[in-house]
Amino acid sequence: MAWFKRSPWILHYNATSCNGCDIEVIVSLTPLYDVERFGIINTGNPKHADILAVTGSVNEKSRQVLINLYEQMPEPKVIMAVGLCAVSGCVFQDCYNVMGGVDKVLPVDVYVPGCAARPESIIDGMLKACEILEEKYANRNKREKGEEHE
């Protein structure tokens, strides 16, 4: 039995977002949307987090930060790209300092579209992420068991 579905904790990082999606991520914690119903907490610390919610596209400087944060998260972990910028770069695609979507740097598992992404779709993305977490945990267990058999 895996418990990730019931208690996914989120770390939010603003890679180069314009704040629009950031605020919607924060708003999804608040009374109207209240993601804590699903046991979701915004931890603010990679070492406690299960889901890394990235808003905004990636630039030279935030790339390293993202990699650092990802490195410090314990397995299983899921990357969620929130908003169009994080998905593809949105209107900033052509900017000289924008590398594109988050998937240029990290393996993204869930894409949440929208400019700005609406809280409803963010919650939907989080719940998708939970399923992927469970899957990853199951895979890891299988892999470890497999290694034991060999």
Binding site: S17, K61, V91, F92, C95, Y96
Partner: peptide, 11 residues
């Protein structure tokens, strides 16, 4: 700073 610099003025 410059963690969110995109360079959109040059756009």
């Amino acid at each position: 700073i410059s963690y969110v610099h995109r360079g959109l003025e040059s756009l």
